[in-house]
Amino acid sequence: MKILLIEDEQTLLESIRSYLTAEGQLCEAVSSFEEAYLKINVYDYDVILVDITLPDGNGLEIVEKLKENRSRAGIIIISARNSLTDKIAGLDLGADDYMTKPFHLAELNARIKSLMRRRQFDGDPEIVFNEIRINPDQSTVFVNDSATTLTKKEYELLLYFIANRKRVLTKAAIAEHLWGDNIDSADSFGFVYTHIKNLRKKLIEGGAADYIKTIYGMGYKFDAQ
């Protein structure tokens, strides 16, 4: 998957690129409006991550230009401004998602994957991880081909884990993914634990291996080994 990252903050750009590259994505990064403008007119990307506030221009114009070019790329706006007007403007222009800084890289990764899944109409819509098979269209989960009933949050949690497999996910990142702004992170750790316990139990009962590892002091990791 080819990703273009447009972000003027060099250090943040490095972090995002590093995380996405480790995921096996091809990630090109530019830090100015001008470079970005050149790139999008020449190359095709699957996903474009664009910061709104660039030193030499507004990221929203890039979204506009992409739509003008009839680009098929998925667009995620990343902004330092948690502004509803920016968000509405961005989504109205045709962006697919909007994230406010600071965000968890795992969250960004999950959103990119979810975006790609929604856009791949021709490909295999199912997500498969060893004996676990997920049909995102119907929100159903199969373990060894037999349906496993998960609650909405457990399902979201499983998708998040699989999108970030082999990655350590902090409790804070998981809580934010599941509940967004609705919960103060430190409060939520107990809730995260409850959901993970239930999910793990259901997967194991369905016949799956125990993939969810606890990383002491930090969080959890979904890994085959």
């Binding site: 903050e9 250090t11 943040l12 972090s15 995002i16 995380y19 330092a80 800084k101 600071p102 965000f103 968890h104 890289l105 795992a106 902090t170 990142a173």
Partner: peptide
């Protein structure tokens, strides 16, 4: 945002 990304 930078600190959080580096920690991650």
């Amino acid at each position: 945002a930078i600190i959080m990304s580096k920690i991650e």
